[in-house]
Design a protein around this nucleic acid. Sequence first.
DNA 1: CAGTACGAAGTTTTT
DNA 2: CTTCGTACTG
Length: 723
Amino acid sequence: MHKKVEGTYGLKQKMLEGHNKKQIEALTHLNGPAMILSGPGSGKTEVVACRYLYLVRSKKMRPEEVLVLTLGPRAAFEIKNRICALSGSDYSGDNDFGSSVNIDTFQTICCRILREEAQKLGFGRNFIVYGEEDRFGLIRSILKEFKIHEALFRGIASRISNLKAEMIGHEEFLGKGGGFGFEEKLAKVYMRYQTELRKNNCLDHDDLVMYTVNLFQEHKSILSKWQNRVSQIMVDDFQDINPAQYSFVRLLGKESGNVFITADDDQGIFGFKGSKVEHISRFKEDFNNISVIHFEQSYRCTPCILNAAGAVIEGSPGRYKKKLKSERKSIKRKPQYFCGGTEADEASYIAQTVRELFLRGSYAYKDFGLLYRMSAQLRPIEKALRDEGIPYYVHAVCPLYLKSEVKDAIAYAKVVMNPNDSLSLGRIINSPSRGIGETTLTKTIDNARKDGVSLFEAFRKTSSSKKSQSKVKKLLDLIIRTGKSYNDAGKVIDVMLNKTGYMKWLSEEKEPDVRIKNINRLIEEASGRNLYEFLDHVSLFCECNEVKNADAVSLMTVYEAQGLEFPVVYMAGLEEGLLPHSHAPEQDNGKGIEEERRLLYVGMTRAKDVLYLTGAAKRRFYTRVQMQKPSRFLQDLSEDLCCTVKHASSANGSADLHTPPKQEKKTGDQMPFSVGVRVKHITWGNGVVRDLAGQGDSAKVTVNFPSVGVKCLSLKFANLEVI
DNA sequence: CAGTACGAAGTTTTT
DNA sequence: CTTCGTACTG
């Protein structure tokens, strides 16, 4: 397994050099609980990655013994990446760690555990994990059945999720009784929701953790089995874990005590999903002899950015005081605040300054991170970027999975894996048309409820007199047969869609080419994976990491940006009602505003070199245009911490940045090049035009050549060729 | 039962 | 301004 013994020494050297004393203390920490209290950019992800390698390479632990838990899939991905970079191995394929790595989100790890232990909980091993859409769909149908106003569905969905995060099961909640009005309805829906999931042999995301904890609590033998399998636990971003996740860590790690956590109470931003910063102090009480290590050196932000962010977070009560230091003194750019007239002005300011900075040559597009509070802010920004011709990538649910034909395909796969998944069966029972309309479907669902069987069974029971029923029967048989014959997810989808005539039907719909291409992309992604492996991936990690290498600006919510960093960051929408959000005060017993403050802090501290804060005076929400006041948090930023710019081109307070943009699209007719055009140079090869200046003989062109970097050339002599 | 047309409602934030 | 759900007609 370990290829070279001599590599171990070299690796250790490599890990130790370039790290400060605290970091080395942390990454070589071996036994007993440890807590890293760190500020942003202090290298905690790096230390988690290094310690992993330290344990596996130097201490010869098996990779599967070391459990690394993260909140989001991106953080897990980031850690794996870092380990690859450090060890020189490639994680994407099978390497010397093999598939035995346990670096993943809580949900994914719990899902893996439950795949082994599901029977103990009364679930079949072939359970399906419901994603958000399935969850909402199921709750919606229950509301309809109970004749509860559908508008309540959002509140009910989030309450159910919160209850599970607090480990309050449906029976316990109902047992508490005493509920009137909403609470009573909630209890009723929760009850039905859970029994329905169980009947369908399905779990939602919150179930994964809750049931795993239940399992550990109720079956000591199973707990000790997993305790024995895991000798080291690391948890990243501990400030953001919820009670169920805390219980999981505690149960699994209390006995050995080998729990290593990283936390920053200033970055707790997930209160709305039941996370509690208090788990940090709870950890201190529950575990004995903790080594507490403070990381106060910031390697990411410049002092200017750190000071501004510090001023924002300082107002927050009850936090551990930290004194963060930054060594990056060479760049002295203060953050800038710009307030546009409308959200469109704000967006075009962003797009224009991105372009300007890009043309200057020191930053590639992928060095920019555009962050916002909520996804509604995305559209105007996207539009402005498109208008400027700036490539961008939105970090969100993979658009492929939103396509209806892809959802259908996945539903087919789910039904094959678990015929009792009534929601998925309901989705595909009539596409392509098998003569099962609305009425038949609801009638069959009713029958299924009455008889206490799944939809699959109910369809099977109906007498096969009519033509439609023979079609349905054929489908049901095919589902069973396919499940027995194939394990490969791609093959299953392929077989199902072809044998059911779905592909034929699709080819007669409108836009058949695109949609068939979408299906083929899905099949490609599914191929070579187990059915359950693929479906788990789809419902636990809905993002595609396509075009990873493309040079594009990143767009995402601040929540998604946690743990990431960018040389240039924009925080958009710094307005009352947006950040802090208007719903914030109701949240978390009035502590909601503080969470918004931390949100801004997280956003600001993603920036390495340059930080822009933006907002708008007027913003249209859905149909209404609203006057917006600047965010209250801006008051914490005095002029010496952050300068205010009025308009994109008339920035005077920041001469170091805003040498006014010279060329305003005056594409002189003798200028054969324009920004963004690919050109070929005789010695430097291919490049992209970034800037143009001057006319005629003195015309100059700035080109970025991937091999040699940014060059400014005189057009007269350069002999460039457009390609 | 399927397809179309019109009306309504809806935007925090995530695994 | 969308998307989604319902109602009506063929």
